[in-house]
């Protein structure tokens, strides 16, 4: 069992959780992920590290409450435990020798952008962060990013309730056009990463994306996370999660992410029916 040592609500539907996992904390690197399972009946879900402390032996992740598992997770707190936490999985984000980098974090993607930006800074790069959200209430980790020695922090919201009223691709395009960046990385919903990749490709700026396909074991055993990159099939869990955004088949990724939409709806409905019966 993995004790929960930290739980914080970041917005209406976004939560941060920390668990005691010293062996994983010792090895965690920016861009890597864990797989957790809440209990005996639970599914295995991948979540990318948002933070960790090797000295104190904990790891943290941030999740959005969308389906049954994340609903259950949002109701757990310090003193509760998770049945299983496995990691660190996946290849760490490449952070060395990038020069001037733009890191785009869309929605919950900001959770991954934070350790990535931090690691890139530590490796001596100049880092600009673009944080995007639908509205101000969904914006997360703004204070944490402000505490980093970034070249610039640009905030965009769809409705203008915080920062610029724009999509993340607008400032990204400007940075490319003005020659302000040598490389970029985009972390967020597949559709956002697709447009970041398209924007940077047009400007000839490299763009790494952190993909979030469906997984089961997370160690290369099942192949659920197949993604097509440059015409080749890769496994998101062991070959990724980071790939060259200019080569990723995002349409396929988005299609594959929808395989279990009906099942997820059913599980969620069942869960809420049971919850309301119990009250």
């Amino acid at each position: 069992m993995f004790p929960i040592v930290h739980a914080r609500q970041l917005s209406e539907s976004v939560f941060e959780m920390g668990v005691e996992a010293p062996a994983i904390a010792r090895k965690a690197r920016a861009g890597q992920f864990l797989i957790l399972r809440i209990d005996e009946n639970g599914e295995r879900i991948p979540l990318t590290f948002s933070d960790w402390s090797a000295d104190e032996g904990w790891i943290r992740f941030i999740f959005m409450r969308v389906g049954k598992t994340t609903h259950q997770l949002s109701h757990l707190g310090v003193g509760d435990s998770l049945a299983d936490v496995v990691g660190p999985l996946g290849v760490p984000t490449h952070v060395e020798g990038l020069g001037r980098v733009a890191v785009v974090g869309g929605g919950v993607g900001a959770a991954v952008a934070y350790p990535v930006a931090r690691a890139m800074l530590a490796a001596g790069n100049e880092v600009t962060v673009i944080l995007g959200a639908r509205n101000a209430s969904l914006l997360i980790l703004e204070d944490e990013f402000r505490a980093l020695p970034l070249t610039e922090l640009i905030i965009t919201t769809d409705d203008g309730s915080a920062g610029r009223k724009d999509l993340v691709t607008a400032p990204l395009k400007e940075l490319c056009e003005t020659g302000a960046i040598d490389a970029s990385m985009a972390i967020g919903p597949a559709i956002m990463m697709k447009f970041c990749a398209a924007t940077t490709k047009a400007q000839g700026v490299p763009c790494v994306v952190s993909l979030n396909p469906i997984m089961v074991d997370g160690t290369g055993m099942c192949g659920a996370c197949r993604v097509t990159v440059g015409g080749e099939t890769k496994f998101g869990c062991v070959d990724g999660p980071d790939f060259d955004g200019h080569l990723v088949d995002f349409e396929e990724l988005m299609s594959r992410q929808r395989v279990y939409v009906d099942d997820e709806r059913l599980a969620d409905a069942e869960y809420h029916r049971e919850c309301s019966c119990g009250m």
């Binding site: 009946n41 639970g42 599914e43 295995r44 049954k68 598992t69 089961v216 074991d217 055993m221 099942c222 192949g223 659920a224 197949r226 993604v227 097509t228 099939t233 396929e252 299609s255 594959r256 929808r258 395989v259 279990y260 099942d263 997820e264 059913l266 599980a267 069942e270």
Partner: peptide, 30 residues
């Protein structure tokens, strides 16, 4: 081969055996 509905036997069997997908939605894995 990457269409939805194509499984490796490993994934198909892991979902059903290890994750007990045949008991979905009691077991959470579909």
């Amino acid at each position: 081969e990457n269409l939805n509905g194509v499984y490796s036997a490993n994934e198909f069997l892991t979902r059903v055996n290890l994750m007990r997908a045949y008991e979905f939605p009691t077991a959470d894995t579909p």
